[in-house]
């Protein structure tokens, strides 16, 4: 069992409301190939797509699985963003689904909450959802070089971490993302939302097999120091969570939310195809993996770089 300071943390309520999708009067955006496209995927209640589903292949941009919430008040909205941690408990506090319980699985343009589908059949846009925010300040006492971000004690326990005899922390991950693919979000501090990995080079996606990632997968990002900001630093290691789906915009792709980062090589990865919070947190039945499974072969295999 890893030693942490979880017992010193304060658990506090933050809240948001189910936020509607929004579109501009002129909704077109240019894809990385210069095609005008109308994109949807963010905000609202995503009835079909949950954490555990493939991150690629949807006719959507930045697909936010589950329920997207936000607060109208700027200060309360930032508290929701900064304090809600992955794996935190959420509960519907108004409307027909009052009392339904969910779990925080992402923080992007909205905080993303997963619910069992049958519990939110009657969930309405505008319904209020409260989160028991718990995890800010969490630290691993035997791994002082590692900074945790947005990681709840519940998630920490579920990641199957191991302290190695040489002092490093072993983390099961589905895949590794090389530093040169880290894109939009470099301009932000590591405690605010996510950083996309860039998928415009489809041949590179096929080569690395990254297009078979799922929402909820745990990944390692090499040579990226996300202890404070987000940038290249040789030897640094960051562990992230895939929170939203792919994008056709240049410099964008599935979102990697920082869970832990070290400026020195204090983290080692071990491959584990099941390192996904949908199963590790018990949000979905592992049998669901067969539904909408990414193909065995990359969907971009054979695609040439333009």
């Amino acid at each position: 069992m890893l030693k942490s300071n979880a017992e010193s943390l304060v658990e506090v309520a933050v809240y948001g409301e189910v936020w509607p999708p929004a579109a501009a009067r002129d909704p077109y955006k240019a894809t990385s190939e210069g095609v005008a496209a109308v994109t949807l995927g963010m905000a609202g209640i995503c009835f079909q797509n949950r954490v555990g589903d493939p991150a690629f292949g949807w006719e959507a941009d930045h697909l936010e699985p589950g329920v997207s919430i936000r607060n109208r008040d700027d200060g309360a909205e930032h508290a929701l963003h900064y304090l809600a941690c992955m794996g935190n408990d959420a509960v519907v506090t108004s409307g027909a689904c009052r009392g339904a319980r969910g779990t925080v699985t992402g923080e992007h343009a909205h905080v993303l909450v997963d619910f069992p589908p049958e519990s939110i059949e009657l969930l309405a846009i505008g319904d209020r959802i409260q989160v028991k925010a718990y995890g800010t300040g969490l630290a691993l006492l035997d791994h002082p070089d590692i900074q945790l971000h947005k990681c709840s004690p519940r998630l920490l326990d579920a990641l199957r971490l191991e302290s190695l005899p040489d002092g490093r922390l072993q983390v099961p991950v589905v895949a590794e993302i090389p530093s040169h693919l880290m894109g939009s979000g470099a301009e932000l501090m590591a405690d605010y939302v996510d950083q996309d990995f860039m998928t415009g080079d489809r041949a590179e996606m096929a080569r690395l097999g990254l297009d078979r990632l799922r929402l909820g997968d745990i990944v390692l990002v090499r040579d990226q120091d996300h202890t404070w900001g987000r940038g290249y630093f040789e030897g640094a290691v960051t562990i992230g969570l895939i929170i939203h789906g792919d994008s056709a915009w240049a410099g964008h792709g599935p979102g990697v939310l920082d869970l832990m980062s070290a400026r020195v090589p204090a983290i080692v990865a071990v491959p584990d195809a099941d390192a996904n919070i949908a199963w590790r947190l018990g949000l979905r039945d592992p049998a669901d993996k067969a539904i909408r499974a990414p193909g065995a072969v990359s969907s971009y295999a054979g695609i040439e770089t333009v």
Partner: peptide, 12 residues
């Protein structure tokens, strides 16, 4: 290896 035609992103 950087594509700045309609945005900014990696492309070999």
């Amino acid at each position: 290896d950087y594509d700045s035609r309609w945005g900014n992103g990696y492309l070999k």
